[in-house]
Design a protein around this nucleic acid. Structure first.
Lengths: 207, 207
DNA sequence: ACCTGAACACCGTTCAAGT
DNA sequence: ACCTGAACACCGTTCAAGT
């Protein structure tokens, strides 16, 4: 008997359906008003069904954050490959793609760094997704070191600095604390930042 | 008639009492579980009294954030004056004091950058306190430019870069995303970061 | 296995009174 | 003016059942 779609929805993948509903609700109304019951309502399921797939509300949010890191990693990797082999250009392209991701999905980005995962050992999939996007930075820095255009410090430390810079820019921009209007002026600021970072990154023998 | 302290507490400054109670509750249990009713209970007042002083819960949190920025500004200014006149050393000292402030008061720091003030025009006192702490950075950078040791770009842009860096470091450290254990190793990382930033900041004619 | 409604202990906020 | 208790519409989570 051919399976016919039922209108109860949840014969499929309720877990992913809940995540999708949470993401779209968050992008519409932000995080602070998001309730588990609301997510269940949007999916067409009782307010209690989510507990079959998530231990509590925090676990659902952790899954949403995890998918955010996966998407961010893809955006960074795409930016990296869109550039020629020059590691400086690649690093700048990654940084700009990173901040643009944050600005395009402000609530989702903020959720990825929320304080709801104090015990991140509990959410290992989330930690792993974050680690994976971080590795895009590390490997690009190693490329630059191999090419002799970046100084020879610990590449993980350098990546931490770069990540801190783009994360700080993203968060402060989302908070309207940088006092720069979006558009050309903001992109100019991002390029100024990466130029400063790259100069700090240059090998000692640079001109 | 000499005024005798009553045990109703709130004959004094209920507004500040609520802020203090919120700060201590936050430092004990974090932000996510903080409720307005809990704050009122701690102060010994009905769950409704706070509405005499704050329009809603968000307004109380904004006041808490504002006092956080004032304390942060003091910490930065103290670090600046504790250093000799050299602008590079001052900038590094400010950066380290900044991150230490964040790590010492993790919940309070996070609250200062929460998304609860989308319309920050509504909380002008908060915006002003943030601006004031930012100016400590700007003026230190101007000092370095006047002394000829920093490049001559827009000092506000440079300050934005520096703020982004320390804010990113603070947030990622609070999130346990930097994978560095606190202590000497972390301070070494902070010094490495500021060294990189300072090299990027150096004037073109630097050796 | 997966989903359900009822129930519990909490919220933020509003309102009509009290002093 | 400032504070109060009662009330409303919501939560997150638990539990005992239903299929």
């Amino acid at each position: 008997m051919a399976s016919v779609a039922k209108n109860t929805y949840h014969h499929g993948d309720l877990r992913q359906g809940l995540i999708d509903a949470a993401i779209s609700l968050i992008s519409e109304e932000g995080i602070s008003d998001l309730s588990l019951r609301q997510v269940a309502r949007r999916v067409g399921v009782s307010h209690n069904a989510p507990y079959r797939h998530f231990e509590d509300k925090e676990a659902l949010l952790a899954a949403v954050a995890e998918q955010g890191f996966q998407a961010l990693g893809v955006a960074m990797e795409t930016a990296r490959q869109g550039m020629s082999i020059d590691a400086s250009q690649r690093l700048e392209a990654i940084g700009i793609a990173y901040v643009k991701f944050a600005l395009a999905q402000p609530f989702h980005y903020r959720l990825m760094f929320g304080d709801y995962h104090d015990n991140l050992s509990k959410y290992s999939a989330l930690a792993e997704a974050a680690q994976q996007s971080f590795m895009v930075l590390v490997s690009t820095i190693q490329e630059g070191q191999a090419a002799g255009i970046f100084r020879s410090a610990n590449p993980v430390d350098i990546a931490r600095v770069a990540w801190s810079l783009v994360h700080g820019q993203s968060m402060l921009a989302l908070d309207n604390k940088l006092q720069i209007e979006q558009g050309e002026e903001f992109v100019a600021f991002l390029k100024f930042s990466s130029q400063m970072l790259l100069q700090g990154l240059a090998g000692h023998s640079a001109t």
